[in-house]
């Protein structure tokens, strides 16, 4: 039997792992898919472009875990759902945004949606639980950050001298000195970007078959779900 975990362990580099997994495709699609999944699970895999390449299109569309694999990679690369869904749509991969589902409920009913959200509230009824989901968006905020060492230079110059010449009282000499201090500071700054998540204003109810204590309130999650339609509150 093909040992996908052992396969992925040979290639700690995600890009190399995916390329090697791809080589199994002509031989066994089953082994190639197991190898690809192992690459995503056991390497810091963020290569969404390689994953949605034509080579894997059939696998991603037909296998039940295809959408989950894509969702996991979107999360691993930071969870920028809006931008990554745009990449998936260029390849006609059917995972949609909450915004699309809300705007055309009939069109998207039963379809996959991918949402970045925080859990606001949790209600349980027997085994089942319902989560209040608050959709989050990422925006990039930049600020200047000092790079490396800052140099501070302090120089003191003292000038002394005498000045001679004619004055109204006759000839004379005036002596004096001038002290000058110069301070300078050199620092190099670069813009640094931080991704701040904030509420989009969209909310949803998320149904879970069983209670899950790991879905904690106040943290962002990348959630893959089926859109069941709209419900009047």
């Amino acid at each position: 039997a093909f040992d996908a975990k052992a396969f992925a362990a040979q290639f700690p580099n995600p890009a190399v792992c995916e390329r090697q997994a791809r080589r199994y495709l002509p031989v066994s699609r089953e082994n190639a898919w197991s190898a690809l999944k192992a690459c995503v699970e056991s390497t810091p895999f963020t290569q969404l472009q390689a994953l949605i390449d034509r080579a894997w299109a059939q696998e991603l569309r037909t296998r039940p875990e295809g959408a989950a694999l894509l969702a996991k990679v979107v999360a691993q690369r930071g969870g920028s759902v809006e931008g990554d869904l745009r990449l998936l749509h260029e390849r006609k991969l059917p995972i949609f945004s909450l915004a699309s589902a809300v705007s055309q409920p009939d069109t998207y009913k039963g379809r996959y949606v991918l949402v970045r959200a925080q859990v606001g509230d949790m209600r349980s009824e027997g085994e089942k639980s319902t989560l209040w989901l608050v959709e989050q968006d990422l925006t990039s905020v930049s600020q200047e950050v000092q790079l490396g060492t800052a140099y501070r230079r302090e120089s003191t110059f003292t000038t002394t001298g005498d000045v001679g010449g004619q004055t109204s009282l006759g000839s004379g000499t005036v002596g004096g000195s001038l002290a000058q201090t110069e301070l300078s500071r050199d620092a190099v700054t670069i813009p640094a970007y931080d991704n701040i998540s904030h509420e989009t204003g969209r909310e949803a109810l998320g149904r879970l078959a069983s209670q899950d204590p790991f879905l904690e309130p106040g943290r962002d999650f990348i959630i893959l779900a089926r859109f069941d339609g709209m419900r009047t509150t």
Binding site: T46, A67, A68, A71, K72, V74, A75, Q76, R77, G78, G79, S80, L98, A101, V102, P105, Y112, V113, V115, R116, L131, L133, L138, S140, A192, Y193, N195, R202, E203, A204, L205, G206, R207, L208, L215, R219, D220, F221, I222, I223, L224, A225, R226, F227, D228, G229, M230, R231, T232, T233
Partner: peptide, 20 residues
């Protein structure tokens, strides 16, 4: 009244912090 989308959660993941 107002309506809210209902989702059946399939799976979820913790987003990795983005490094730019």
């Amino acid at each position: 009244g107002p309506s809210i989308p209902v989702l059946s959660i399939v799976s979820y993941y913790t987003p990795h912090p983005l490094v730019v």
